[in-house]
Every structure is written in C-alpha cells, then in structure tokens.
Amino acid sequence: MNFITSFLLTVGLFIVGYFGSRLPFVFGLVIPYTALTLFVLGLVCRMIAWARVPVPFRIPTTCGQQRSLSWIKSNNLESPFNLLGVVGRMFLEVFFFRSLFRNTKAELYDGTRLVYGSNKFLWVGAMAFHWSFLLIVLRHFRFFTEPVLPCVLWLQDLDGLFEIAVPAFYLTNFFIVAALGYLLARRLFNPQVRYISLGSDYFALFLILAIALTGIWMRYIDKVDVVKIKELVMSLVAFAPVVPDGIGWLFFVHLFFVCVLLAYFPFSKLLHMPGVFFSPTRNLANNNRAKRHINPWNPEVKCHTYEEWEDEFRDTLKRIGLPLDKAE
C-alpha cells in the first residue's frame, strides 16, 4: 500500500512536470528558487534546532577497548579517547558508512534455529548509491559554473572512463540505478524490512530514481539542448533570469523532480545527511573516566567542605585535642 501510494505520487509529479514545461516561467524560475530557498533555510534551521538540544553527557556507542592503563591495548577508532580518534571515526562513518559495514542479519534455520550472520549487501548498495549520487551532483556543476571548474571536467572523464557510446556512458548512471533498484527490492521482498517500510521510505527512493532515470533519458535517448539549459541555469545563478525558448519538456520534468527533492529534504528522513554530523553517539570522545565533564547548565550547589567545617570548629577541636589537617 505504501509502495503503491509513493509510486503513484511520483507518477503524479511526473505529470505535473510534463505540463509544467508549458509554464517555463513558473517551473524554470519560481519553483527552483523556492525549492533552493526551502532547502537551505530548512537545513540551517534544522541544524540550529539540533545544536540547541542539550547533550549533558558523553554518550558515544563504542565497540572497542577504551583507553585505560598503558599495558591494555586500546582502540582509538572504535572507542575514541581524543579529537584525533573522533575525527577518524567520523571520517570513516561519513565517507565509508563504517557502522553499516557491521550490519548483521538474523535468520531462522529449520524453523527453530536462529542464526546470525554478516550481511554486507546493504552496505554495498548504500555505498554504490551515495557515492554515485555525490559524483552525479558534482558532475552537474558543469551547468552551474562558467568557466567550468577543472575538477568537474576531471570527474567527468573518470566517470566516462570507458568511452562507450556518444555521449560517453557514465558509470555512475549504471551504479545509481542498480543500487536504487536493490534498495527498493530489499524493501519489497524482504518481509522484515517490508514490514517496517513507510511511504516516506519508498517515496525517497522513487523520487531519486525518477531524477536519475529522467536524467539518463535526457542524456542518451531524447536529447535536449544543453547550451540552452546552461543559459537558463547561469541566468538563475546570476539573478538575472532568462528562460530560453525550446528547452525540451523532459528537462522540466527532471528539474521539477530535483526541486521536489530539495524542498522535501529538510522535512524528511534524508536529513541524515547533516544529521550524521550531529550524532552524539558518534561525535563524542569516550573519555568519561579520564576527564570530568560537568554539565554546563548545572545550578551551583552549595557545599560545606571539610576545610570549612574544620575552620568553623577549629577552637573546639583544638581544645579537646583532636588531630587537625591545618595546624593554624
């Protein structure tokens, strides 16, 4: 049901984008600006909201020996005790999804025996998807920058390494569709995952799949005039919008999908992009025993220390001959 709803929603967006090509001013200008504004402001507001949440304790999740005595081998990546360890751990988490690499599966064998095993497929699928998506986004900077950034050209060459067909077939095109296909199939055919899949899970996948497929369609099958599209994009970027005539309808569908993704981003599960940096279980050093962390907004507690008590009763203590810490 969730699956069908999300699918129909995506088809609906396609149809809206198709008719949108008849209103190039709205779909080429108003909607992109609005979507980008929503994306940027939404993400900044989210990050500020997260940053204001109190994290009074260090709550890293660890899976390695923490540093204690010099002769006990510790693991600075799995249980970081300093900034270097935290940075290394975050780096591996952000770029290589290290915690997902430890993904396991639990299956019943013979209906009675529960067996746990490693399951790397999700990690492989996630890596293929996220890296392809990143490269694709970076590659698109050929439309956003003039002169085109040299590193973008270099990425394009790398991506089109095999020089199959004209225009060169990009490896990321294949990888992103394959990975999204796997991620979708996993939600559909794995009963446990299917049970916990919500409409928003399917929708994010369908939306990105739709973006990828319309992009591929536009590049290889029903080609569009790239120069006109760059003219439009560059005019948007320079805040002097011009919508040239004769841009194919497919471009407007693609752009509309991207706008929906941008606008939807700050309100969806896709927020894990900035969210990973705000995970207190990842970004804090596990040094609770080595350092005393005092909650910065604790109210001041009035105490009466032994020294103060001794000062208070010094004369009495002296008179009855009890030993004193301070003679005077």
């Binding site: 940027v40 003039e146 120069v227 006109k228 003219e231 560059m234 970027v237 900035p274 940096f277």
Partner: peptide, 26 residues
C-alpha cells in the same frame, strides 16, 4: 563553522560566477 561550510558549498555557483567574472551567457 559547520553551517558556514554548508552555506559556502551550497552557494558555490552563486559566488563562483562573481569571482570568475564571466557573463555566463552562451
């Protein structure tokens, strides 16, 4: 710092055009 880095990255096309001083016209 994180938010500033995000803003600088996401607005690259906007400020790059100004620095490069190209019209961006075809």
């Amino acid at each position: 710092i994180g938010i500033l880095v995000f803003l600088v990255l996401v607005t690259t096309p906007f400020w790059y055009g100004k620095i490069a001083a190209e019209s961006g016209k075809p």
